[in-house]
């Protein structure tokens, strides 16, 4: 009996060692999986951050181009006005307008139209926002291979700054889906015409003064009063490597795999000026940082009828943006945006 008991106990240690080793190896595997999972989450968040930033940087580039383009229009108007004011227009034709002045204005209008077309091409969604989203995806792929196709920028949401059709730029030369809500300003080109008639013994004699004018669609101003252009990067999905599958559904590390829990990682970036704004007319004049008179005009009471605002500056940068603290309490940025169906940048800060 006692001898049989010893025989039964033989191998007991081996079983114990095997069980302990199995447990330890399992713990090591879990620790490894957790480390890699956390690491990949960090990489995913980095990817979302950097993708959003890249898109915002591209949008800042476009805004800077638009500012320069807009200023070129304003400068052309200023040059035209200076020339019209600096010359004497006294055609001997008994009645305005002066054909030489009108021919000059025609040249001005043609040049302004060319610059306006350049503005529209730059503001167009295909040139501005679409490449920004492409930059975001390229950046995502560069940081975490394969995530570029899973990066989303709220393109599917009505009112999203990255959704085509959200903003429109209206012009006499057409309307384009655009990076922001721009409207073309109408300005005046006029001149003083000294009206003369050839009836003073065959010579021209003055009959009075007229102020012929031409209204020209020129530079642009921004309708919506949000000075920044927002972009949201959203990396979501499961890391390609899958971990922590206690159900052993196959594949993965140490024979383990799982859905890992889908993660949606958010990031916000914004293209914004450091000072001033892109020209919302509801801001104070000092905040517009650029409202100005494009050259002199022969218009009495000029101060009371200033040109439409030209409120753009050329110092756009991209910045990362944080989510407001009042989003705490379980609400996600996306759920808020979805619920309201609008893009409200006041919910975010930066």
């Amino acid at each position: 009996m006692r001898g049989g008991g010893r025989r039964d106990r033989r191998g007991q240690a081996a079983v114990l060692v095997a069980m302990v080793l199995f447990t330890l190896v399992l713990l090591l595997a879990l620790a490894t999986n957790m480390g890699i999972l956390v690491n990949d989450r960090i990489r995913m968040q980095n990817t979302a951050d950097l993708a959003a930033y890249a898109a915002a940087y591209r949008e800042a580039q476009v805004l800077n181009e638009l500012v320069l383009s807009n200023q070129a229009i304003a400068l052309e108007v200023a040059e035209c006005r200076a020339y019209l004011v600096g010359n004497v227009w006294n055609e001997c034709n008994c009645a305005p307008p002066d054909s030489r002045a009108e021919a000059y204005i025609d040249q001005c209008v043609a040049e302004i139209d060319r610059l306006v077309r350049a503005f529209l091409e730059t503001a167009d969604y295909g040139y501005s926002v679409a490449p920004a989203l492409a930059a975001g995806r390229a950046t995502a792929d560069a940081n975490f291979g394969g995530t570029g196709s899973t990066i989303s920028f709220l393109e599917d949401l009505v009112g999203s700054p990255t959704r085509e059709g959200t903003y429109r730029t209206d012009s006499d030369l057409g309307t384009v889906d655009s990076i922001a809500d721009y409207e073309q300003a109408t300005v005046v080109l006029n001149y003083m015409h000294v009206v003369e008639c050839p009836d003073c013994d065959g010579a021209c004699c003055p009959r009075g003064v007229a102020y012929p004018e031409r209204r020209v669609s020129a530079w642009f101003w921004k309708r919506n009063d949000d000075p920044e252009i927002w972009v949201e990067g959203r990396a979501y999905g499961t890391p390609r490597r899958q971990f922590l599958d206690v159900a052993f559904s196959g594949g993965g590390y140490f024979g383990a795999s799982s859905n890992g829990g889908d993660d949606t990682l958010w990031a916000y970036a914004v293209a914004k000026p450091y000072e001033g704004s892109v020209g919302p007319t509801r801001l104070s004049a000092s905040d517009r940082n650029g409202e100005w008179m494009a050259g002199p005009l022969y218009v009495p009471g000029l101060a009371a009828t200033p040109d439409p605002a030209l409120g753009m500056i050329d110092e756009y940068r991209a910045r990362m943006a944080g989510i407001r603290e009042d989003l705490a309490g379980g609400a996600t940025p996306r759920s808020l945006i979805d619920a309201e169906g609008i893009w409200d940048s006041s919910r975010f800060r930066h």
Binding site: L28, A31, T32, N39
Partner: peptide, 25 residues
């Protein structure tokens, strides 16, 4: 010894993971 090896390995794995996360951040 086996237990010690596993514990040391786990610790080293932790420091390696920490370094990787630190580097990414």
């Amino acid at each position: 010894p086996v237990l010690l090896v596993v514990m040391v390995a786990t610790y080293q794995l932790f420091t390696l993971t920490f370094a990787a996360q630190n580097a990414h951040l």
